[in-house]
Each structure stands twice: as structure tokens, then as C-alpha cells.
């Protein structure tokens, strides 16, 4: 097995183990209920709906909206602080290695298709959409679109999040007759978003992470400064372009090692014929994290 395949298998393994650990409450799937133990007070770093029957922790985006939308608080120091810690330590490593919905998209992209699309017109502009979704649906709507008692609803979860539909909506509706009877237009809308996302993920690599995910947008803000980072050794680099060709997120690691789009998957490091790219908490002498190509 070549080294690229080895790292892909290792990453898929880590994603699978983390997805299992985040959703290991098997009783929930059998009974159509959710876990109600004390671990639910803890946020898990990936996009993992806390209404998934197996979820043992909380989704940071759902938690942020829940606290911000409450009548008592209009900002969440707890979730904000959590995102700051995870972002400063790991950055978008979370997207590449720890997010359950990232794993789902990775598996979808393994499905054979006539032509996989890597670049298309508008791709660069669309990448900014996730910041807009973060600002409007996660921060502003729960704060300002409120009911009579001053409580806002989690707008991103309600109208967009396909991870919640997949891991929470579908298993709960299948296992709970009461919820099945309550299905309406909103559920159909969210099923349509989920279907479109999964179909798009077959053709384009991780479309939800690239264009829509507000959690990825938060971690992207920390990617340039995070302790876990990507470095290029300029003395070793021969500018062959193998790394940018290997990157499915459309990043050129030599030009922008701290790119907000880099999910630290490691494909570039494995593609490098000179071992000039290092990813991790440490790096050899001579490497710089943010250097520009001359």
C-alpha cells in the first residue's frame, strides 16, 4: 500500500472512531429517544446534532444558538470560549479528521461518477457564503427574530443543517411514531437540502464544508494561527505543483499554508516528492508557516 493510501485509511479510521465515540448511545437508536446524561453539557468539536439518538455530547453550533436565543443571555461565553480553544489548538483539523458530517461527505465522494468537479466558475466567491450563514443564521436570527417572550429559534438548525436531518431527523422519525405524525413542509425542505448536499458531495469534494458550514467558518478564522499547522520547507520545495494538484479543497499549500480552506487532511504532504510539507504541532528548522512564494 502506498503512503497516500495509508494516510487516507488512517484518516477514515480516525473519523469513523470519533463518529462512533460521539454517537455511541445505542439505546437511543433502538428506542427512538435521545441521551439525557451529564455529558450533554459538553460540546464536541464537530458538527454532530445533539438530537441524534446516539449523540452523547452537544453540537457547538446548536448550543451557540440555544444560548444566544434564550431570553436570559444574548451571547454565549461558554460556547464561544470552547470554539476559541479548539480553533486555536486544532483549526480546521477538526473538519478533516473529527467531523462526522465530513466523514459522510468523504464517503459520498468515493462513489464513482462520470466526472468529478474540482474547479468551477464562482467557486472562490461561494466559499464566502459560509461566513454569511454564520453571521445571519447562527448569530443574528436567534438574537433578533424572537417570539413574544424574547426567545429566538436556532435558525441554522431549523432551515439549513443537513447533519441534523441525517443524524437526528431520520432516525428519530423512523423510531418514534409520535414524531412521524408531525412531519410537515419543513421536514420535506430539510430532506431536500440533505439529498442535494449528499448528491453534490458525490460530484464535488465536501460541498457543505466549502460553502455552507458555519462551524467550518469559525475554525477557518483560526486556521492561520492554530498550533496544529501546515508548514512548507522552502529549501526542499521544488515548486512542482504536486501538492496543489493533490488538494481536494482547492488550496495551494506553497502559496497559502495557513489557508482558511485547508482541512489539514495531509494529502499534500503525502503527494510531495521531496517531503517538504509538514503538518502538526511541530516543524523542522527552516520551515515557515505563512511564507509566500516569490
Amino acid at each position: 500500500m502506498d503512503k497516500k493510501k495509508r494516510v487516507l485509511h488512517r484518516r477514515t479510521g480516525v473519523q469513523a472512531v470519533w463518529t462512533f465515540l460521539s454517537n455511541c448511545y445505542a439505546v437511543g437508536f433502538v428506542e427512538g429517544k435521545i441521551y439525557t446524561g451529564p455529558l450533554k453539557k459538553i460540546c464536541f468539536p464537530g458538527l454532530n446534532c445533539y438530537s441524534c439518538p446516539g449523540a452523547v455530547g452537544s453540537c457547538p453550533i446548536g448550543s451557540l444558538q440555544a444560548v444566544m436565543g434564550s431570553w436570559k443571555f444574548h451571547a454565549s461565553l461558554y460556547v464561544g470560549g470552547f470554539l476559541m480553544v479548539v480553533g486555536a489548538v486544532l483549526g480546521r483539523f477538526v473538519c478533516g479528521w473529527l467531523c462526522p458530517f465530513g466523514l459522510v461527505q468523504d464517503l459520498c465522494h468515493k462513489v464513482p461518477f462520470l466526472k468529478k468537479i474540482k474547479h468551477f466558475p464562482g467557486d472562490r466567491v461561494l466559499r464566502y457564503l459560509k461566513y454569511g450563514i454564520l453571521a445571519v443564521f447562527v448569530l443574528l436570527m436567534p438574537l433578533f427574530v424572537v417570539d413574544m417572550v424574547g426567545q429566538g429559534s436556532p435558525a441554522f438548525c431549523q432551515y439549513i443543517c443537513p447533519a441534523g436531518t441525517l443524524s437526528g431527523g431520520i432516525p428519530l422519525v423512523l423510531g418514534n411514531a409520535g414524531l412521524r405524525g408531525a412531519i410537515g413542509f419543513l421536514f420535506q425542505w430539510k430532506m431536500a437540502i440533505l439529498a442535494a448536499t449528499l448528491l453534490a458531495a458525490v460530484i464535488v469534494y465536501r460541498p457543505f464544508c466549502k460553502y455552507l458550514c458555519p462551524l467550518g467558518a469559525v475554525y477557518a478564522l483560526f486556521n492561520r494561527a492554530s498550533l496544529y499547522r501546515l508548514r512548507v520547507d522552502t529549501d526542499k520545495c521544488i515548486h512542482c505543483g504536486a501538492c496543489s494538484k493533490a488538494c481536494k479543497m482547492g488550496v495551494d499549500p506553497v502559496k497559502a499554508p495557513g489557508s482558511p480552506e485547508c482541512i489539514r487532511c495531509g494529502d499534500c504532504a503525502k503527494a510531495c516528492p521531496k517531503d517538504a510539507i509538514q503538518i502538526g504541532f511541530t516543524a523542522s528548522k527552516g520551515c515557515t508557516a505563512q511564507q509566500k512564494r516569490p
Binding site: K33, I34, Y35, T36, K40, K41, C49, Y50, S51, S58, G62, S63, A66, V67, S70, K72, F73, S76, L77, Y78, V79, S153, P154, C157, Q158, C161, G164, T165, G168, G169, L172, V173, L179, A182, I183, G184, L186, F187, W189, K190, M191
Partner: peptide, 21 residues
């Protein structure tokens, strides 16, 4: 006291999250 609100939301099925509420 943010954890109280977070916990209350997380241990009840979030109808909005699953596309019903």
C-alpha cells in the same frame, strides 16, 4: 449559568434541529 440552558436544550429532542418544529 449558561450550562443550564445548554443542557435543557440538549436533553430534549430539538424539533427545529430535526426539521419538525
Amino acid at each position: 449559568g449558561e450550562l443550564k440552558i445548554l443542557f435543557a436544550k440538549a436533553v430534549n429532542i430539538c424539533l427545529e434541529c430535526i426539521g419538525i418544529g
